[in-house]
Amino acid sequence: MRLSSIAALAAAVLLVVGCQTPPERSGAAAGSGAAAGGAGVSGRGATDGVDRMAGTLSEQLAQVGDRVFFAFDQYALTPEARGTIEGQAALLSRHSGITVRIEGHADERGTREYNLALGDRRAHAVKDYMVALGISPGRITTTSYGSERPAVLGSNEQAWAQNRRAVTVVFTDRVGS
């Protein structure tokens, strides 16, 4: 439950990415603008509590981009994806207390089991690059949803391109340095 609520928070917060990430339909994301406290954390409060820290980190993650995209049936990182991951890694190195989970996804143009493996490969491609950038592998977990959780609904190239993705989600938030 904790995981999904954090994921929902991340989804809500990440709307600020704007045109690159169409609104997710799930839960708190719908209609909540920017990083307002739609997902149940104390949004832009004045105190420096843990909850606010979570919001802040997710906001910052949103600013650098929480997700990277892949070509059809590929897991190689594009130059754009590398740039995004570099931003994520910089954020992670500034906040050594946070850990992240990278969720790999595939579009619906493949078979279920292969898509799980492909999503797993994509998540690891992101993780491997983060580790190469100096982030401890112990701070990064991965999973794959295959084609089970599309970000964009639709059976067309535009939707598929958005669904072939790896999303970095703030997994646990301890007050970092």
Binding site: A117, D120, R121, A123, H124, A125, D128, T142, S144
Partner: peptide, 9 residues
């Protein structure tokens, strides 16, 4: 079955 380790199934 498949097991994946470090991204390799």
């Amino acid at each position: 079955m498949s097991l994946s380790r470090e991204g390799n199934s």
